[in-house]
Amino acid sequence: MFSELRQAVSVFLALTVITGLAYPLLVTGVAQMVFPRQANGSLIECDGVVVGSSLIGQTFSDPKYFWGRPSATSPSCNAAASSGSNFGPSNPALHDAVKQRCEALRAADPDNKAPIPVDLVTASSSGLDPQISIAGAMYQAGRVARVRGLELAKVEAMITGRASKPLAPGLSEPTINVLELNLALDGKI
């Protein structure tokens, strides 16, 4: 009994040292040498200021920007407390939220009568989704072009140019990174 307890404790502690300390420290060391940008959060700096991460979504409410996925975190796009809405499909709160988002999109672009792509009005899983579908971007292209006084074709070309490529043909639908698209619009990258 005692010898078994000793074995249990010492094997557990020894494995803790190896897998809980040595292993993560080694991975961190190698990662910081080989992939420093990724390991530190794929941050985007403009003029020495960190304006975001290419992986973390930000909230946009200004009509001149493309808007990203709705975020259920509090406040919106809170990268220190990620979360989805967890609303069930039959929950009236979900229906209300979708309705409000639809109304907001239509209010910002009253002439656009097209049906709204679903990803623009449903909350993402993490609350930090950096991307939207191409359909979602195209839906907003008219508004952004109008507000910024740009040609629609130019905005649409930016979207097409910045669309992600699938890993393999037909493997997934293309998406576009909203923060990077908006930074490009602002001419910051």
Binding site: R69, G84, S85, N86, F87, P89, L94, V98, C102, A114, P115, I116, P117, V118, D119, V121, T122, A123, S124, S125, S126, D129, P130, Q131, I132, S133, I134, A135, G136, M138, S164, S172, E173, P174, T175
Partner: peptide, 20 residues
């Protein structure tokens, strides 16, 4: 709301799912 799948969007039930 447009929930139809196309080459430009996944469509479907996107609540609680990531675009990528």
């Amino acid at each position: 709301v447009d929930q139809t799948a196309s080459t430009l969007q996944p469509g479907g039930n996107m609540e609680g799912k990531e675009a990528r």
